[in-house]
């Protein structure tokens, strides 16, 4: 078994206002793997991550054990922060100074000598494909470029652990692909990656293992492909039509098909795409869509509600 970069046992967080943000969660992350936390806003993903580098104080409970690269964040936040890079949800860049200066200021936080910092900055700008932007003002950057700059900043000290809090929320597909490529490249170099996202696609693309969270608790945990294979039928036919909804409400169509009704659509799940294709013929063409199921369907099934209905 690989060494564990992170081991968390029975962690809890209740905020001052009484909100139980994280409720008895345990997990461990092997070195060099990518671990994803999935769930809607308010599920406790960010709180959980912030507890790992001391930005949120966990509840003091006797049963809780936290080990991040050999340190406990409650008592040893500095060595952990020195070994990890964090990409927070907000792009908190210094808008007063240009791209290069943003990185140079950050290099000082790690105590890097100026010469070493300058070499590292050139390397990072190259890696994140921002080379031409070294002298650009932060406010002139696009959202995707800002995000890449924040990632470059997090990589300043060659982290062994990279923490990404919703790295691609609100970005266009090209930038997302680029960021995913970079994360995969870092993983190949042995960097452990921790990721929060509410994009199923993102978890599927880069995470080796995921926890699906809801309301501060763990709902499901496992390897994304396995979770899908075990948790839900591989195919779904979506019918955006009243007839679909009624036919679903009328009762089971066959043993091979399970169906669920939403507000304006019916979903027919099955292991057999051909049965669904036959079924689709019964509805007006253009109102049906046959596709493989994804983690979002699984999430819906596990929690009984849609992924983003709680904002």
């Amino acid at each position: 078994m690989a060494n564990q970069a992170i081991q968390v046992e029975r962690i809890y967080k209740t905020y001052a206002d009484g909100t139980a943000a994280v409720n008895d969660v345990s997990f461990s992350v092997p070195e060099g793997s990518c671990f994803g936390f999935l769930g809607p806003n308010g599920a406790g993903k960010t709180t959980l991550m912030k507890m790992l580098f001391g930005m949120v104080r966990r509840d003091g409970r006797a049963e809780t054990r936290v080990d991040v690269m050999g340190f406990d964040p409650a008592f040893q936040e500095l060595p952990i922060k020195h070994l990890c890079g964090v990409v927070p949800q907000d792009d908190n860049l210094d808008s007063e100074v240009n791209v290069g200066a943003n990185l140079f200021i950050y290099s000082k936080f790690y105590g890097l000598p100026a010469k070493e910092a300058r070499a590292r900055i050139a390397e990072l700008l190259d890696f994140m494909e921002l080379k031409e932007k070294a002298k650009a003002k932060v406010n002139d950057l696009s959202g995707g470029m800002k995000r890449r700059l924040v990632i470059a900043r997090a990589l300043m000290n060659r982290p062994r652990l990279l923490i990404l809090d919703e790295p691609t929320t609100g970005l266009d597909p090209q930038v997302r692909q680029l960021i995913w490529d970079k994360v995969r490249a870092l993983k190949r170099e042995g960097v452990t990656v921790l990721l929060t996202t509410h994009y199923m696609e993102e978890a599927y693309q880069i995470a080796d293992s995921i926890i699906i969270m809801d309301k501060g608790s763990r709902v499901l945990e496992g390897e994304p492909h396995e979770l899908l294979a075990e948790g839900i039928e591989p195919w779904v036919l979506e019918v955006l039509d009243k007839e679909g909804i009624t036919s679903c409400q009328d009762g089971p169509l066959s043993e091979r098909i399970r169906c669920e009704v939403g507000e304006s659509r019916a979903q027919f799940f099955s292991d057999h795409p051909e049965s669904l294709r036959d079924l689709a013929a019964a509805f007006p063409s253009g109102r049906t869509h046959l596709r493989p199921t994804n983690l979002e369907d699984l999430f819906l099934r596990s929690t009984g509600r849609k992924l983003n209905d709680q904002q």
Partner: peptide
């Protein structure tokens, strides 16, 4: 938030 993610208390 950015500064406290670096090794600063």
């Amino acid at each position: 938030d950015g500064m406290l993610a670096a090794p600063l208390t």
